[in-house]
Design a binder for these strands. Structure first.
Lengths: 105, 105
DNA sequence: CCCATAGGTAAATTATAGTTAACTTTTGAT
DNA sequence: ATCAAAAGTTAACTATAATTTACCTATGGG
């Protein structure tokens, strides 16, 4: 048990959003909050670990997109979250057609 | 055929990166460039459509992460790209255990 | 009820992203 | 080899994100 826990800090954990739903900044914000609280970390914990200010963290957890990508990526990496890229028009049914793949868009 | 094409603008299309590989800002940048050129759009086309400056677009296509998330999302939406979120520790083998799911992290 | 701790907000300042405009380089079609 | 258009760079400027510090509120344990 960590010292912090013995000092009685309590971080209520929030529910992880459904990551199968289509991306939105709100979903990202919720996932970050859920991850952080699930790991029993406070805003100040993350703030200190990443040298990121608390107001900026709060902006991120509120889904404000007027934040530098690098700051969001730092938080995500720290919490064990990451992106994957989806190309909307990219066909799932990727059967072999013999055609060249220069029409993927 | 569009007027632009009759004016002889040529946009060389670049290859789409492998979207199954793990996310990096470089991968994102490459995907954006590949999508844009695949759609035969110039930087100025996108710049004009989104009211975003060319230097900012170039930063994005170079993988510079010191860019506001909102600007990246605008470009991605315009080109038909999107994110999905991945929780690193989230188990794939999600078998029914009867346990409550408050230990997802 | 206290009191400590976490979340959240506000104002002033600093750092820097973004824009504009002009310019250079690269590219490819003819 | 020329020419036009696309990509990329630069510098000065403007807009605004980020920080700092200080506050306020909410919550839960004792």
């Amino acid at each position: 048990m960590s010292i912090k826990q013995t000092l009685g800090r309590v971080v209520k954990s929030t529910k992880m959003p459904d990551l199968t739903k289509s991306f939105s900044s709100k979903q990202l914000a919720e996932a970050i909050t859920a991850k952080r609280t699930g790991m029993k970390l406070t805003l100040v914990d993350v703030s200190a670990a990443l040298s990121l200010s608390k107001p900026t963290l709060i902006k991120i957890e509120k889904g404000d997109t007027n934040v530098k990508l690098t700051n969001i990526l730092k938080v995500m990496e720290y919490l064990g979250l990451s992106f994957s890229l989806i190309s909307d028009e990219h066909r799932q049914n990727n059967k072999i057609t013999g055609a060249s793949d220069d029409q993927w868009y």
